[in-house]
Design a protein around this nucleic acid. Structure first.
Lengths: 344, 344
DNA sequence: CAATGGAATGACAGCGCTGCCAGCCGGTCG
DNA sequence: CGACCGGCTGGCAGCGCTGTCATTCCATTG
């Protein structure tokens, strides 16, 4: 089945041109220090001249590497897409590549599938997006194979793998303060999906601030929307149809906030005068609805870069993380748009 | 740098257990026909028992393959994400993998970068999302290396590479008919980005139907929104602020339709009674705005599967496509929601 | 000036698999 | 009955690179 691709340049040819052994060229490719300056330059020039690209399969086979990082997620969407872009960007700077692997978290077969990836592709690392970041089976498989793993916005802090995220609790608290500062006292909250660590954190941030200011949290104004627009619709309906309604609603992501806006509109409410709505994430929809959403921006791309960075930096040294395991919190940003106003 | 991963099972071990040579095991792995039924079963059983997974790097190096399909796109987003999911799904059925490669179409460096991918990763195929599907440099590089390529929703039909898409022109025509059937005569149109093939097709479909029904197209009601929400805002503003305004607006994607809704709302228009708005794509935002958008649904995942299928089917036979080059059109769907109504 | 030792380089085997080709077996044909 | 053929299987080299370890180089030292 062999065929006639552009006749590939091999390391031997580079070596010949640079008048060194292929091993020394290999050293340069792998950024090994023990190569004299002028030798390195000579080799670099030869590589340039021949337009040489090392064959990844060969590198991988010989060195038992893959230059591949798996990005494990549950389903596609904007977040994944954005995250992936950031990760790919970082990888390009270091000859690494990203392989996106969607998992059906519920399937009993994940164990086998993870095995396949690890053994067949020989992934050098894995980045886990929520809610996979807390998937016990996947985490266990990864740990068992000692694959460097980075968890994004995980639920359980204590773990053998480092994590990257923002301080959801503080962010939610800050947002709540914003609402309180405007004068709102009757504030509703829409929870995310239970499997996500962020869900609890954001709610805690909300209650932290409410309690700190002595404002009561009405249980009937706390609803679960699972981070999806459709469920958000129901939550909003329940909060807004009663006689006594909140003057502000804090949805723990933007999709649900958009749902609140829809429902409010159907109830004939004028936004933001009669109802303030805030979201979280600064998803695309945040600026595609009217009024545009006041929300929290997560530095998704930076998080992706950081995650990739952690893995790349660690590779190809021996598996296992150096103590202490890094847990990185990046900065969020409160984006004030026009979905909030003082209560009527 | 070698380290201690799960001691990997090799093809030799399988061969030993099945009492055949490794070559015969290889035949089974590659679905070669010349293996007797019972021998195959014996080998399959051994593979199962040892939980053997062939090492991709070794397979690739020996066979000059990679089992990798590149998905070339310009930037992340929902469409990419959805498409990718479909492609990955298909690939999983055949031991293939998808590698997403974002390109900066304008960069003078794309040529070199494509080279890197082809030679370093030895991609077995490429799927090009618009507007990359018409990128001359990338297309040329791919053709030069005789890499099987599938273009999604391309602009220029005549090409050496097969394509997958929907009949944008007919879809737009159908949508226009829907508006006309409701009684609209004053219809505005928002064009997409010039680089996308769909832009022209959708507009042509619109004018086809308008002409067929003898309804004039007002030039001042045809605006360019480049498929993005922000530009859509301006387009809508221009159409709706005049004394004489359209009773319906056909935005050629959902993001721009969402923009029209925002602007209409700011103008105090009641939707859909005073203005009908339709979009295209059935993007997530289509159901996250109120009223929800009447739109055209593209079978994105099916398109992805088809594209991957074309490449996988073709591999690993010799490069170059069998004549005639397949151009596949999948079925779209007109989704009626509540953003359309008869004119006032 | 020879001895010494660390830095730089090279020789060589082998990673796990597939391509090529030879060999085996049993049946068919002249 | 031997030549022949097609279906199946095995032997072996080698894909392009890196790990290991041996070797060479060169500056320094007594």
């Amino acid at each position: 089945m062999k065929d006639h691709r552009p006749p590939s340049v091999t390391i031997e040819q580079v070596a010949e041109l640079a008048e060194v052994s292929s091993k020394t060229v290999s050293r340069v490719l792998n950024h090994e220090p023990a190569v004299r300056e002028d030798t390195r330059n000579r080799i670099l020039k030869a590589i340039e001249k021949l337009d040489y690209r090392p064959n990844l399969n060969a590198r991988g086979l010989a060195g038992d590497r893959s230059f591949l990082i798996g990005l494990f997620c549950e389903k596609p969407g904007d977040y994944l897409s954005e995250f992936q872009a950031g990760a790919v960007q970082r990888c390009r700077e270091s000859d690494f590549h990203i392989m996106v692997e969607p998992w059906d978290g519920g399937s009993p077969d994940v164990g086998r599938q993870v095995n396949t990836l690890l053994r067949q592709l020989r992934l050098e690392g894995a980045i886990l997006l929520p809610p996979i970041s807390d998937h016990p089976v996947i985490l266990a498989k990864l740990a068992e194979s000692a694959i460097p793993t980075v968890r994004i916005a995980p639920k359980n802090e204590p773990a053998d793998a480092p994590s990257v995220g923002i301080d959801d609790r503080t962010a939610a608290r800050r947002m709540t303060a914003h609402l309180l500062d405007l004068g709102h006292r009757a504030i509703g909250f829409i929870l995310g999906r239970a499997e996500h660590g962020a869900t609890e954190q954001r709610y805690l941030g909300f209650t932290d601030e409410m309690r700190a200011r002595g404002v009561p949290v009405k249980p009937q104004w706390v609803q679960t929307g699972n981070f999806v627009f459709n469920d958000g619709l129901g939550c909003a309906e329940r909060m807004l149809s009663g006689a006594h309604r909140p003057t502000a609603i804090f949805a723990s992501n933007d999709d649900m906030a958009a749902a609140v806006i829809c429902v409010a509109r159907q109830h004939g409410l004028e936004l933001p005068r009669q109802l303030s709505v805030v979201g979280f994430d600064d998803a695309p929809v945040a600026t595609m609805v009217w009024p545009q959403l006041t929300t929290i921006r997560q530095p998704v791309r930076a998080m992706a870069r950081t995650a990739a960075e952690l893995i790349i930096q660690h590779s190809p040294r021996r598996r296992g993380w150096p103590r202490p395991i890094p847990h990185r919190l990046l900065n969020f940003e409160l984006i004030l748009r026009n979905s909030t106003a003082p209560p009527p």
